[in-house]
């Protein structure tokens, strides 16, 4: 409890934050390695990113400026409630701008604007174990990580190609970290995988599964593939209909009853910033007029 009699700064008590920070430091020291931690009950249900919230709580300092995104947007229920939670419990500034933020908590996306040194990206992770799909025994997957026995990861990709003619895994696409640990990047689209080699610090928190893992800045992150089926980040063959960007991840949006649709950046901050800078997409004019 603080003097105000409300919450401790960022909700968690100092001892819990210390425990989480130790796990984070261990994770940063061994990139891609899943560190067990004693996940705490948070005042929100598990599906809401309690792992990410605990990691964010352990990282925040009063000077921080927090951004929270869900599927690239700052205004979904999930993002809004997590942002409000930290405004209330930590009193930190919040923002929707990637460039203005110091800590970003995310579900399902990496911002389009490259992170700079000193920024922290916190991922909410539902299932941290990339081998689980094919080897359910925890004792065995732990041994596989310890001995870097990762052939099974390729069995999963083999099955993809055998069934669909291509690697159909589009989210949570497995990566090899510094040629050592294989890691689940959380359910971000594989389009975002190349961005994981970045200047910012990336921290991953899985609440229900009680695991933390991390990537220090400039860590080598390679998406797994086959020589004859190389990794393909895949992007819809459209520019953004709002800002005209040709290098961003797009959401498909239905715009009328007649089956009309538009493609728009899933990163709303990025799209807004581009339009503010004068970029225009195919439908931007009508939208602005409306």
């Amino acid at each position: 409890m603080t003097q105000s009699g409300q919450y401790n700064f960022a909700y968690l008590d100092e001892q819990t934050k210390r425990m989480i920070r130790r796990a984070l430091l261990k994770g940063l020291a061994i990139p891609g390695y899943q560190v067990p931690f004693a996940s705490r009950e948070m005042p929100m249900p598990y599906g809401w990113g309690t792992g990410g919230v605990q990691v964010t709580a352990a990282c925040l300092v009063p000077e921080d400026c927090l951004k929270v995104i869900d599927q690239g947007a700052d205004d979904t229920t999930n993002a809004v409630s997590i942002r409000k939670f930290f405004q209330r419990t930590a009193g930190v500034d919040v923002t929707e701008q990637t460039t203005a933020s110091t800590v970003i908590q995310t579900r399902h996306r990496i911002p389009e604007t490259p992170l700079r040194e000193g920024q922290i990206l916190v991922y909410q992770v539902p299932i941290p174990e990339p081998l689980r799909f094919i080897e359910p025994r925890e004792t065995e997957t732990r041994k596989m990580h310890a001995l870097a026995e990762y052939g099974l990861m390729h069995v999963k990709l083999y099955e993809d190609i055998a069934r669909h003619g291509a690697i159909s895994t589009a989210y949570a696409y497995p990566v090899s970290v510094e040629g050592r640990y294989v890691m689940d990047p959380s359910p971000i689209p594989k389009f975002d995988n190349p961005k994981m080699e970045m200047a910012g610090i990336q921290l991953f928190g899985a609440g229900r599964e009680q695991r933390i893992y991390a990537l220090p800045p400039y860590t080598r992150v390679v998406s797994l593939d086959f020589e004859d089926y190389p990794f393909d980040p895949m992007r819809a063959e459209h520019p953004c209909d709002m800002c005209g960007a040709e290098d961003t991840y797009l959401d498909e949006v239905i715009i009328d009853d007649a089956g009309g649709r538009m493609f728009v950046c899933s990163d709303t901050d990025h799209c807004t910033a581009r339009r503010a800078a004068g970029h225009r997409g195919r439908l931007a004019a009508t939208e602005d007029a409306a």
Partner: peptide
């Protein structure tokens, strides 16, 4: 194929 992949074969075909 599992054993082939376990010893490092990375060519699907």
């Amino acid at each position: 194929g599992e054993r082939l992949m376990a010893v490092g074969d990375r060519h699907y075909g």
